[in-house]
Design a protein around this nucleic acid. Structure first.
Lengths: 199, 199
DNA sequence: TATACAAGTAAGTAATCACTTGCAAAGATA
DNA sequence: TATCTTTGCAAGTGATTACTTACTTGTATA
């Protein structure tokens, strides 16, 4: 019979709201992400949400921004390391999968929101995230081909396209199959990619 | 200044409504698929939609049923042919891509609706479609391995998972890149898969 | 030609949506 | 202690949602 939520600084409350939003997306679906339901799950009133965000759109925009800061820059760093390409490829894929495993609502948000809403700015953000990931992946592959460890008669572009399907598949499998063994997943995918790259 | 839509038998009208729904999903996003907007685009009144379908849910359910009848059974037939596995693989992938190219709203509907709505029956239907496609794909791969034309040291299951990412990627690329050259796409993907399968 | 049914409409319905308003009170600073 | 800013809430707002109701009209068949 809570009367009023504990007062917290906006910075903290924003993080809580975004975390709750991802929980809802992952466990109940995007449709349940109403401001009413989000407030209830976060233990605050609906009005309080709009004290910390100007709009619902801004909440999603802020989450996307977090992904760029946390995931995309890390993938960039991995791709640009001066270690061997096969080592970088492993780090890249495994970090990518681990991040998505630990932030389970992200994939649904990125791919569903873009095709559900018709928000132009959001679409452009997602487009950028998508193609940056492809670009960093391609960088590693091209380095490996230049180093002579991988076959050059492969379309790097196609392989990068194929790679981008993996996060989505991971998510669908997790969603449909509750006992999905995520741990092997990144190494299984790595093995397949290495096989395709073999000279 | 049309007063009343032309009278058509329910069978015809249902097809028109479903076609219009897919057009909206593809070109305007799932959010714009309201019964109000759907009726306007189909050139009928909102009430007429409910003359031919009991609910909006039933429209989507009927489209999913069409996919099972048109796409899934065709993929089954291709997988079960007694031609060479590499021929079947080519037919399988190219028919799959062609179907999705000609029915552009389907992929968004299948993958977005499942994570947007929390409709249990729909989720089970989509689960079935997803895993049947994986199963038929795996059948071809296993036949090729048994015939000795492809390497046996590959996880058929992993490859089938990887394969299922392709339709989604195709859709995202088409959406983000208006001048995407779909024609090469299925052969590029086929090449990569064959490379991974090489002995 | 009379009748019955199928297919159409306009104008509703309650529920839900994102968001606003006006006010109370906690916490920091003077 | 007095003041000011920030964070909270209850109770709204109009717009939109899927769907219903009551009624009209085209068309096939007796």
């Amino acid at each position: 019979m809570a009367v009023t939520a504990q007062r917290k600084p906006s910075k903290t409350r924003r993080i809580e709201i975004k975390k709750t939003a991802l929980d809802i997306i992952y466990s109940e679906g995007l449709k349940k992400l109403s401001t009413h339901h989000l407030a209830a799950k976060a233990g605050i009133s609906e009005g309080t949400i709009f004290r910390h965000f100007n709009s619902k759109k801004e909440i999603i925009g802020s989450i996307v921004k977090d992904v760029k800061a946390m995931l995309v820059t890390r993938l960039h760093d991995i791709a640009m390391q001066d270690t061997a390409p096969d080592k970088r490829l492993e780090d890249f894929i495994c970090y990518h999968m681990q991040y998505l495993k630990e932030n389970k609502g992200i994939t649904i948000l990125l791919f569903t929101e873009a095709s559900y809403q018709n928000n132009k700015e959001l679409k452009e953000e997602l487009d950028e995230i998508f193609h940056l990931q492809q670009k960093y992946f391609s960088k590693i592959i091209l380095d490996g081909i230049l180093d002579g460890i991988w076959s050059s008669d492969i379309s790097t572009e196609s392989l990068a396209s194929l790679y981008m399907g993996i996060p989505i598949i991971l998510n669908i499998e997790i969603n449909l199959n509750p006992v999905f063994k995520h741990d092997n997943f990144c190494y299984q995918m790595l093995t397949l990619i290495l096989k395709a790259l073999k000279k």
